[in-house]
Write a protein that binds this DNA or RNA. Structure first.
Lengths: 142, 142
DNA sequence: TATTGACTTGGAGCTAACTCTAAAATGGTA
DNA sequence: TACCATTTTAGAGTTAGCTCCAAGTCAATA
């Protein structure tokens, strides 16, 4: 596969593909006779895996370490496992954090919903704008 | 409250606190007679809220927009609600993504666990190292 | 054979989000 | 009164993670 094909297939820019290879985030890709990259399915799996992990917030640094361990062979299996266990721990923490933030967003949306309903009621039934100091404070929660 | 107190309490550097204020990520903080920031509880709530949202991945840009809307008063309630609904949607997507990545990490950890057990078995029961081409491939999954 | 287009490399440039620096003001302590 | 810590500002510097550029190679086509 050419870099153009892989780039389109995995939706990663050619520059990023080259960059990832350069810094050791994916193993070196073979070149054809004319020196151009010729990606295998294996290469694609690596790239896709890296993309997935990056998307979840694993740093490039830690992923480079993983690739380096992988390339050193079987003696690093335990180290790789430990690396993933640590990253898993951090990922779980991030997810928990985000869930809490989501609840907070939900709450704010609910309050705004309420505020709008209240405002509409006021406008519809009393034809009078709410006093600046009263109702307005209601809308101004954080 | 002084900037030192708030910095320690919310675990945000003084530089970051000043930076957030400068770019409009939090409303302007009052100064005392000598020109130093004097944070109120309200200010702290803002900062804590912003910190929480930033931690979940909302960009500074979108949060600045929120603060700007907030400061324009009640006429922007609907817009603020819409902003939060959009961010909520994106946050849910990020969480789902991360959950999938977590499963993938779990799977890899399980495989490594397996690999190690297999390796130990081999070493213990047969006293023979696995052939490079066979079992080694097992460990080398991505 | 000249041109075109995809590819190569090393290195420079960019953006978001801080983080640091320098120079100056203030207020409390020896 | 001299010193010291804390704070102020504007602006420069840093880091991660790309993204762009220039100069050159190569293969295919007009």
């Amino acid at each position: 596969m050419t870099i153009t094909e892989v780039s389109e297939r995995l939706d990663i820019s050619q520059d990023t593909l080259r960059y990832y290879e350069r810094i050791g985030l994916i193993p070196r890709v073979n070149r054809n006779k004319s020196g151009n990259r010729d990606y295998t399915e294996e290469d694609c799996k690596w790239i896709e895996f890296i993309k997935c992990m990056r998307g979840a917030g694993l740093t490039i640094e830690v992923l480079i370490e993983y690739v380096a361990l992988f390339q050193r062979g079987d003696e690093t299996i335990e180290a790789r496992k430990e690396l993933f266990i640590e990253q898993r721990k951090q990922l779980i923490a991030r997810i928990e954090d985000m869930k809490e933030t989501l609840e907070r967003l939900d709450y704010k949306i609910a309050i705004y919903e309420q505020s709008i309903v209240e405002k509409e009621k006021t406008l519809t039934y009393t034809k009078v704008l709410p006093e600046a100091g009263q109702l307005s404070n209601l809308y101004r929660q954080k």
